[in-house]
Amino acid sequence: MKVALIGIGKIAQDQHVPAIHSSPDWELAATVSRKGSVAGVPAFDDLDRFLKERPDVPVVSLCMPPLPRFDYARAALLAGRHVMLEKPPGATLAEVHELEALARDRGLSLYATWHSRMAHAVAPAKAWLADKTIARGHITWHEDVRKWHPGQDWVFEPGGMGVFDPGINALSILTEILPRPVHLRQARLEFPSNRQTPIAAQLEFSGQITADFDWRQEGPQTWDITVETTEGTLALRTGGNVLEIDGRVVAGQSTIMGEYPALYARMAELVRTRSSDVDLSPMVHVSDALMLGRREITDAFHF
């Protein structure tokens, strides 16, 4: 199937393009971007022109920041295209609900992707926890914003989510592996004095689940989730790609490079069956944190 990438930035170049090129399901047939392009692929700088001139491309994958994404997704759906959304699926919950309804009414596929759910060890972790009694759990998600979003000031503007841009990856895993849902009880959010979104957050959920997100870590990055049960302790390392039970590695691979190929395989399945996959539970937790969180001002941040 032919697919177009809309928004050719770092995540598109690092993950989407290699995943599409390596897939037996997809051909990268076009790109739409004001600045970026992919060698050898027809490039457009205007979505409307692409939709008019390339009716042969039935699927679009949106990789731009969340704030402008709704208008692009809506236009694509109205033009009869199936739509794949980079995480988070939108800037607000309401706009994603509207896109879901539009896709359903037009018989099109809409996929709100969560790439961390495709990490190698997430499925076996979910299976191991399915019949366990959980005592407590904790997320430590510390990374360096300068490494992953170099100079991208939009992540600190309204709609950019700040530290919840990576933190929502952890929440997407948590909501996938827990046998029962949890809800947020309280949060503490650290806002740089010169920024509009938080650079760190500490969350407390029901079920004795806590989380510590920080975007200021230099050197080795930390993406860990531990869950203590009455039958042992589970730990997910490397962003959900390595599974340990009581300190022993039992599943997974220490690489994140399998996540996006799995997303595109899932999208191919959805398009073939004319179905959608839109789970907003990770985004609900972020929305709740921004609603309930106690705001604290910290040092100014500069790239």
Results as ranks from 00 to 15, higher is better:
V32Y: 04
R106P: 03
M1A: 11
H97T: 05
S281H: 07
S116N: 09
R188H: 11
A75C: 03
F191G: 04
G137Y: 06
V17C: 07
V284S: 00
L77I: 10
L85H: 01
A289F: 14
R274D: 04
K87A: 10
I20A: 04
G239F: 14
G167C: 09
P65G: 05
K52W: 01
W128C: 06
S281F: 03
W154K: 02
A79G: 06
A125L: 09
T31Y: 08
K87M: 11
A127P: 00
G160D: 11
A43E: 09
P68N: 11
Y72H: 14
S276N: 08
A91S: 14
R117A: 01
S281E: 13
M1P: 09
L263G: 01
G159N: 09
A200G: 08
T175F: 05
R185V: 15
L77W: 13
V163L: 04
E27D: 14
A101H: 11
T210M: 07
D279Q: 06
D46E: 15
W128I: 03
A29G: 02
E218A: 10
A123K: 08
M1V: 09
R106Q: 13
L62M: 12
W128T: 07
H142D: 03
M291V: 08
Q186F: 09
D224T: 13
H82K: 01
T175V: 10
M283Q: 13
I245K: 03
P24I: 10
M291S: 12
K132E: 15
D165G: 11
F44I: 05
G232P: 10
R104D: 13
A94H: 08
W141P: 00
S281M: 03
A29R: 00
A201M: 06
R294V: 10
T92K: 07
R272D: 15
V155N: 02
G36P: 02
R274Y: 00
P24F: 10
K2D: 15
M161H: 12
T238I: 09
G207L: 01
L78D: 13
F205L: 12
I173A: 07
D45K: 12
D288M: 05
I139P: 04
S116I: 00
P55N: 13
R295S: 02
E27P: 00
Y264F: 15
E100Q: 15
R185W: 00
K132R: 15
A103G: 12
P150G: 03
L270F: 04
L110F: 14
G7D: 06
F205E: 02
H120L: 02
R49E: 14
